[in-house]
């Protein structure tokens, strides 16, 4: 991607999205990079903070809405998506962002992901995937590799990790990407694209935990092994190819857009609006609603 020079100067700046709250994150946490990319992506998109609803669950990563000037909702563990869907359906003009950890999204909240995807609600779901539970002090996460020793898997985990990319792709998400704070320009561009995409968009961010994470997941290690899908000449309109690449989650670190449906399917929120418009034509006046029960 090359921005033509001279580049357009956004009217909103990254700093307009930054709040005064001081992050409690451990210095070095990958989430610091993520929030920087979010500020810039939002500035690029150009919607003012008051038109943005930023929803999260519980976890270190879920603190992120508080560090922005958007309307934030730091809800309960695993339930960011249901709340966000309610917000978007009730007020479709809002830009709705959802964020959380791998545990929040794929363990306790895992059941909700498939449904948000199949409804194709126009929102952007960002998962800061660190393969561990940060806020509760380093327990196993659904994306932890098999064999990982943690305080709840003293002798090594007995489970295969869940693959967030395959999960979301296979339920038919129209936009799926993976980024990392090891490449902030790439992450910013990807987030901007995801936010602009008209439909459910998912960005898995490999955001390392410096306190409980594995050495191999840290930014330095990521810089060594990450491969840009664009450089691999991946065609992001090919869902099957995207699925096949996504299988390497956990072994390879591909960054960029895995899949972007070139013909965005209709979103649930748009369909709701259309149905409301269609049916309101022959509605009884509100004050006459009881006429429905009138025996004639």
């Amino acid at each position: 991607m090359t921005l033509a020079m001279p580049a357009p100067v956004p009217t909103l700046q990254a700093k307009d999205f930054r709040s005064d709250l001081k992050p409690i994150w451990c210095p070095g946490c990958g989430d610091f990079g993520v929030v920087q990319a979010v500020y810039r992506a939002l500035a690029a998109v150009g919607r003012p903070p008051h038109e943005i609803a930023f929803i999260s669950g519980i976890g270190c990563s879920s603190r992120i809405p508080g560090y922005t000037t958007a309307y934030g909702f730091n809800s309960v563990h695993g339930r960011a998506l249901p709340i966000a869907q309610g917000i978007k359906i009730a007020h479709p003009e809002l830009l709705v962002l959802v964020a959380g950890g791998d545990g929040d999204g794929f363990s306790i909240g895992g059941g909700h992901v498939a449904h948000a995807v199949r409804r194709n609600i126009d929102l952007t779901y960002i998962v800061m995937d660190n393969q561990i539970y940060g806020l509760t002090k380093g327990q196993l996460s659904p994306t932890s590799p098999r064999g990982l020793k943690t305080v709840t898997s003293m002798y090594g985990s007995l489970e295969e990790p869940l693959n967030p990319l395959m999960y979301v792709l296979s339920y038919g998400a129209p936009f799926v990407a993976q980024g990392t704070p090891a490449d902030l320009p790439g992450l910013t561009a990807m987030l901007e694209e995801a936010i602009r995409y008209p439909g459910f968009s998912f960005v898995n961010i490999q955001s390392p935990c410096v306190t409980y994470g594995e050495e191999s997941g840290q930014i330095k290690a990521q810089k060594e092994k990450m491969k840009a899908l664009a450089d691999m000449k991946h065609d992001p309109t090919d869902r099957i190819k995207a699925l096949s690449l996504a299988q390497d989650y956990g072994r390879e670190l591909y960054t960029g857009v895995f899949f972007r449906d070139p013909n965005p399917p209709p979103t649930y929120d748009a369909l709701v609006k259309a149905r409301q418009a269609e049916l309101s034509a022959n509605a009884l006046p509100r004050q006459n609603i009881l006429d429905l029960f009138l025996q004639k």
Binding site: S107, I108, Y133, T136, K137, Q139, V151, T152
Partner: peptide, 8 residues
């Protein structure tokens, strides 16, 4: 179970 302070 599932981790949660202060029972973890």
């Amino acid at each position: 179970g599932y981790p949660i302070t202060p029972s973890t």
